[in-house]
Simulated scan of single mutants.
Amino acid sequence: MTRQEFIQLLAPIAVKLRLEGSSIYPSVRIAQAILETGGKVNAWNNLVGYKVGNGQTTPYWHGDRVSAKTWEVVNGTRYDNVPGDFRAYRNIEDSFRDQDLLFQFSRYTSVRQAKSSEEQTRALQNSGYATDPAYTSKLNTLIQTYQLKQYDQEVARMLEELRKQIEGLQNQVNALEKQLSFDAVPGWAKAAVDAAVASGLIDTPNGGSYDFYRLLTVLHRKGII
């Protein structure tokens, strides 16, 4: 799999999750996957370097794990071939969704609140997600090299289009409501409205909707008011 094929595989998932409310920018998510895996999908579908941790299962991780060697930086010293247990997933999307659950912890508040991909990459390192002191710069380099911000922009465009659609629908609703309301009592409902006012049932007869006047008329014809 080429690097571009890897990106094209992940981009739709990253965009989808962002649209669904994930706090992680697609550019950051893809860059992190490249950095953690070298741009290859491992057999256990864990593209984010998520270790087993306390072993608490989630809706997206059911306890499966693999042992693999990695490297860590401790007190400025790099140690190679460090054994670790990593979560294994049924598919890539589950690994990303499970990571989103991790980012709900208070430790990652700054990650969730980031207003840009650059701010988010800094927050990931500052929150201790990785021990590599160059983690932020490596992520930013990957984002720039592969123009990954285009996927953040795609999300922004889609959200703007959705906002416009919602606004258009609301305008239609407002127009329909205006059509169904009356500034004055319609003639066919006047007797019913007079009866409702006289009985104390209503005190503001004007400006009602079609359904309002229709209900009063039905009640009047049935002798209820």
Rank of each mutant, 00 (worst) to 15 (best):
T109W: 04
A198W: 04
S27E: 03
K149V: 07
K51M: 11
A31I: 06
S116P: 05
L180P: 06
K115V: 08
S67F: 12
S137H: 11
K190Q: 14
T2R: 12
A184K: 13
A175H: 13
V52Y: 02
F182V: 06
Q120D: 06
G187W: 06
K222Q: 14
Q153F: 14
L9E: 15
T70W: 06
Q153S: 10
A198K: 14
E160R: 12
R112F: 03
N81T: 03
K16A: 09
G84D: 03
N75Y: 15
L139F: 09
A123M: 08
R29I: 02
H220P: 02
A114L: 06
Q172F: 06
R214A: 12
A198C: 07
V173G: 05
Y108P: 00
N171E: 14
R214L: 14
E119S: 14
A192K: 00
D64M: 05
A192T: 04
I143R: 00
S110W: 02
K40T: 13
V48P: 00
I92E: 06
G53D: 09
L9H: 13
Q120C: 09
V185H: 02
S127I: 01
H62V: 07
Q113C: 11
F96H: 01
D64Q: 11
G55P: 02
R221G: 05
A198F: 08
E72N: 13
E177P: 02
A191D: 15
E93L: 05
A33N: 02
A134G: 12
V185M: 07
P83C: 05
